[in-house]
Simulated assay, not measured.
Amino acid sequence: MRRASIGLILATSLALAQSTHVVQPGETLYRIAQQYGTTVERLEALNNLSNPNQLRVGQTLRLSGQPPTPPVNRRTDLPTPIEALEWPRQTLQGNVAVLRFSATQAVPGQVRFLGSTYPIQQNRVLLPIPALQAPGIYPVAVELEGQEIRLEIQVVAGSFGRFILQLPPDRAALLVPNTLRAERAKVVGSCDWNRPQQWSGNWKKPVNSNRITDPFGTRRSYDQGATYSFHEGIDYGVPVGTPVRAPADGVVGLAQALFVRGNGVTIDHGDGVCSGFWHLSKILVKPGQRVKAGDLIGLSGNTGLSNGPHSHFEIRIRGTPTNPALWYYAAP
């Protein structure tokens, strides 16, 4: 028994000392994360994976270190007080392109991108890339006082899975277009886009689980594949009653039963960034309540349009859903 225990400790220490892992037949990112004492989201970030369910046999995964910093474009031919402007050379579908200004004072202005306008806040702009945005190069207009700067952002495709979901008749009846639009408007409208930034540093996971049952961006069909939408957040497979906690500081925007999303909570984190938590069995906060990262906001459940107990977590930037995984390790 003693010899076996020593062998187990040595094997564990050796595994943790590895910096890479080669994917073997039948392995999943969840199992690999368990083996090395890490998380699926961290492996996603370290290896720039858009779909944790799609691995290749023989693929080499990084296990440690910091997520790679994407290459940036840089311009210095800008009016004072701007010293430089940086933006990513390419951004994955569903991720966030961040424009950063180096300046001696606050830069006034706004940015137009994909038909929407975004203010310059704290000398940066968060540009959400829709998960269904076609790959390509798109223009960006930076409007400063009396001057317009033209840029381009390249959107690259992610490797997202496709699900055809079978719902019980009583739950399928929830898919009413007018109801879906009205509920989405309520969710988006629950956050004040002019609120100053509330969070600081990287975000926390809202549930203590490493089991992702449905990642962000999965293409979904509820009508046998005739049409597809996409999954707007991350689903964690947890039992009913699992504590759900605030991932970052903010103000509760919405806390009520919804038709499709079940018992739901939104948190306004400022700078147009809002998080959402759906299908709860119990809501433990009220609108207007200030919360800190780690505060209990509800208990997971299976309410609304749900086909099993889980906790849904999403992040929207001015109404556009973005991949929450990177916010745990590289929050803007």
Rank of each mutant, 00 (worst) to 15 (best):
S5L: 15
I6N: 05
G7W: 02
A11L: 14
S19N: 13
P25M: 07
L29M: 08
R31T: 14
R31S: 12
Q35V: 09
Y36E: 02
R42W: 13
N47D: 03
P52C: 04
G65W: 06
Q66W: 11
P68L: 09
T69C: 11
T69N: 07
T76M: 11
L78S: 12
W87A: 04
W87R: 08
Q90D: 12
L92Q: 15
T104A: 13
V107M: 07
V107T: 02
V111Y: 00
G115Q: 02
G115V: 01
Y118E: 00
Y118F: 06
P119Q: 08
R124L: 10
P130G: 02
L144H: 09
Q147H: 14
L151I: 04
L151H: 01
L167W: 12
P168V: 04
A173R: 12
L180W: 01
L180G: 06
R181N: 09
R184E: 12
R184K: 05
K186P: 09
N194R: 15
P196N: 01
Q197F: 03
Q198P: 12
S200Y: 11
N202R: 10
W203R: 06
K204W: 15
V207M: 01
R220D: 04
H231G: 03
I234D: 04
G237D: 13
V238A: 10
P247Y: 08
G253P: 12
A255K: 03
A257E: 15
F259M: 15
F259D: 14
G262L: 01
G272S: 03
V273G: 06
W278P: 07
W278R: 05
H279G: 03
S281K: 00
L284C: 08
K286L: 14
A293W: 08
L296D: 11
L296F: 06
G308T: 04
E314V: 04
I317G: 03
T320D: 07
T322A: 00
A325D: 08
A331K: 10
P332G: 09
